[in-house]
Structures are given as C-alpha cells and as structure tokens.
Design a protein around this nucleic acid. Sequence first.
DNA 1: CGACTGTTTGAAGACGATCAACCCCTGTGG
DNA 2: CCACAGGGGTTGATCGTCTTCAAACAGTCG
Lengths: 250, 250
Amino acid sequence: MLDNAVGLWPEKPVDDGDARHFCSTCVFGRLCLPRGYDKAALHELHCLIEHVGPFHAGAEIFRTGDAFDAVFSVRAGVVKTQLRDERGREQILAFYTPGDLIGLDGIEDDRYPCTAVAVDTVMLCRFSFPAIATLSARVPDLQRTLFAVMARDLRMAQWHKGDFPAEARLADFLLRWGQRLAQRGYSGTQLTLPMPRGDIANYLSLAPETVSRSLRRLMDDGLVEVRGREVKLCQPPALVELARAITDRA
Amino acid sequence: MLDNAVGLWPEKPVDDGDARHFCSTCVFGRLCLPRGYDKAALHELHCLIEHVGPFHAGAEIFRTGDAFDAVFSVRAGVVKTQLRDERGREQILAFYTPGDLIGLDGIEDDRYPCTAVAVDTVMLCRFSFPAIATLSARVPDLQRTLFAVMARDLRMAQWHKGDFPAEARLADFLLRWGQRLAQRGYSGTQLTLPMPRGDIANYLSLAPETVSRSLRRLMDDGLVEVRGREVKLCQPPALVELARAITDRA
DNA sequence: CGACTGTTTGAAGACGATCAACCCCTGTGG
DNA sequence: CCACAGGGGTTGATCGTCTTCAAACAGTCG
C-alpha cells in the first residue's frame, strides 16, 4: 500500500490485492493505479497534505461565505454540508464519508457556498486549493479526477429532483448508505446511521415524523430491522424495487 | 468585440463598452477580459470551435449513454437536459440559454448521463473535450472556468432540494428566467417562455395543472400578467418575497 | 431522580396529484 | 368556407400523502 501513511485512504480499506480497488474509495485513487501513475506527481500531492482534526459532532469545518482556500478529503467519520437561511432553517445537501472530497464547489466565487459540519468524530486531509489547482494543470489524471468529483456531486444532487414517495426516498437512502459501507469493506446490509433522524428527514426533504413512520412501515413489511440507529436491510431486492422510482432514472 | 464571429457569444450581447460584461453571458468570458487574457490561448480555443446546428424543437443533441467526446456552448435558443427511465417518464434537469455550457458532467464515466434536447431552434458551438481538457491544463483561467461551470450547475441543482410551495417555485423560476434575459440585454420583466407548461411543471416537479393554477393565482394577485407563453412580471419585489423561501437559502 | 434531546405515535388539516371535462388555437381536408 | 381533429392549456372535484400539532416515550447525562 503506497501511502496510507499520508491519510489519502479511509481507515479501513479492503486489502484484496487489487490496488485498483481504491479507485472507488479514494478520490485520488485514479492517481494510484499500478500502471500509469505518476510517482513524482503523487509525491507532490503528498506534500500538499495537511492533516486536520479531529472535529467532534457539530463542529464546523468551514462555513458559508468563508474564503475558499482548500478542499478536504474525509479520512474518518461523516460530514454533512448544509445551507442555512436567515430564519435559521437549514437544508442538508449531502453526507460525505471517508474517501469523499469536500469543498470543490467553492471555486465558483472563491467562497464556500455551504457549511460543512461534522456529524460524528471526523478526521480530514486538507489540500490547499491554489496548490492543487496548479498541480492538476501538470497532472491530467488529477484534473480529470477533480472534474469527476464535481460531476459525481452534481449527479447526486440531480437524483433528488422529482418528488417521490417517502418510503422510496428512505429505501434509496438506506441502500446507498449500505453501498458506501460495502465499498469500504463493511457489510452493506448491516449498517449504522451516524446522523439523527432529523438530519435524514431534512436531507430527504421530509418531516422527521414521516421518516419515523416510513421506517416503521418498512419494518412491518419485513424489509428492514431497525433498532435506534442500527439498521439491517433484510430484503435488499425489495428495497431496490421500492426505490426503483428514483434509481431507474439514471 | 473581439471575436463574435467565432460564435463564443450569444447573438445579442449588450454592447455597453465594458468587455467584462461578457463574464456573465459567456462561459469563456473570463478568458476575454481586457487585461490578463491570453491571446494565444484564446486563438487555440477558437481553433477548437465547431459550429453545429440548427437543431429544431425536439431534436436531440446527445443522449444518455452516448460517448462523451465534446461539450457544447449554447449560442442561440434554449436546450433542456433530461433523464428518462424505462417507463418513458422523464425528468428535466435544467434549461440552458445562450452562453451556457452543456455536457461537462459526462466526464465522470465518459458517457453523457443525460439527454440534451432542443426546446426551440438552437445553434451551438461544439468543443472537442480531449482538446479543451489539454488546453485547460495550459490555461489556468480556462481550467478555473470549467470548474466554475460545474460548480454553478451543482448549485442550481442543490437549489431544488427541499420542498417549497408551488407558487414559490414558480415565482423563483420566473425571476431566474428574467435574470437570464436581463443578463443578455433583454427585459428582465417582459419575458417569453419558450417551453410548454408541461416542461416547466416537470422541471419544478409539479403537475401541469398545478403550474396553471399557481400561475393564475399569481395573476389574480396582480404579481404577473400571463398571456400564453408571454409573461410580464408586474411586482418583482413581491415575487422575490414569494420565492424567498427558496432563494434565501443560498 | 429529573432535565434533556431524540424518537415514536396519534389525530387533524393542507397541499398538490389525479381524473375528467372543457376551452383555445392551429392546421387540415372536404 | 366550414368542419373537424389534435395538441396545449385551463378549470373543477375528489382523493391521497405528507405536514403539522400534540403528546407520550426512550435513552443519556448531570
């Protein structure tokens, strides 16, 4: 493993002997392909890394309007990004797990458009943006990776267009969370939701009560088992079918 | 005017004597600032341009799954992007007007994730993506512009998270459409909607009937005048107030 | 034990979707 | 010249889902 020491990877990658596996768990994984990776560029990338954290639940990593000077790669924990209006209402935009890159959208006007908050205990890698932008001009793969990260975020945001039944949204959310865990070598069916129900509700644009009720209905139908924040997906195919209304759009 | 001949600009830019105006009407406007623009790079960019069109209403510019090999700048007309599931239902993701750049999100997996369709008669500039990616590595401003375009799309997509009253969505939509026109030198209050009601409804995740009803309510309240696809914004401040629920989030 | 937050459950109400009908305009063909 | 068909748009009535308000409940920490 090339450089886990520098914290580019999440804490518990699967060591299956195939380095390409990291393409899906680390935003800079593309740079690490056995063939074609640029050793010098990788070294430069390492020089940019600055470890920050831990941030504890509720701590803000950056706020809306802060000067955009860096992007962050999640190394451990979960981060949420949110918008807040003057009346204090907030809208959660996304949850980020280890391997995800945060903050790139600040490039539009040199300010972060949203606030990033630690959901649980979070460790991050910080990359100075001017430096990484300069480097990406020299390393095509890095530039492409950065574009891909934004395109991915865009696609995720687009997924949420359209109004779908509460249960479909929830099923989709649970399945995706499971996929994320599975990508990092954990169980994809036995999962822990680190965020409170209210955050899930906000993210899915539902009332917390609706989340609770939908979850109960899923449980009554035997599709999941729920005990607090521990969730077991009992019938993934049925959940997929439920979420189909959303997922088959892409 | 540096190079309208190559079609980088929309057809009717405002000639107010301030070249920086183009920053808001042309995605590559940043490259054209009086000071700091790179003449050689600009020339190279021109060499990449390939004019395509006209596309007539309903014609597809690219489809979901097509190989991603180019991005397009809208020169005239309106383009919509949409997803379609196997049941034929479609979800409109965005409308693009002159100056907007389409297709960048195809970079994620080398395929366009959505279908781009002409809403009315459309003229485009086509840029081979490999070429523009190479060029952007040499021209920091271009690279930054491309990032900004994606960040902007992302922000627009995020705006639509959250569920807002139908009238607020409509007010927001009309105001934004007016802003786009105003940026290009047209009236921001007297506007023509080139797309059918059904497209507006789909885009806003509403039923066509709801769009019609909301529009009528806005008209009864004296906020707008509607005659077919011609809309006049009579009380922009009141519309802003109505849309506030959405817009004050950013 | 008691304050606290987060979660669940219940009952009432609001909003938008759906179904259905009608209207308006345009183009077409007898 | 008129009749008719077809699409887009509007209007009305009904229904379903989610929200809201309210209260009870569970887990945690002082």
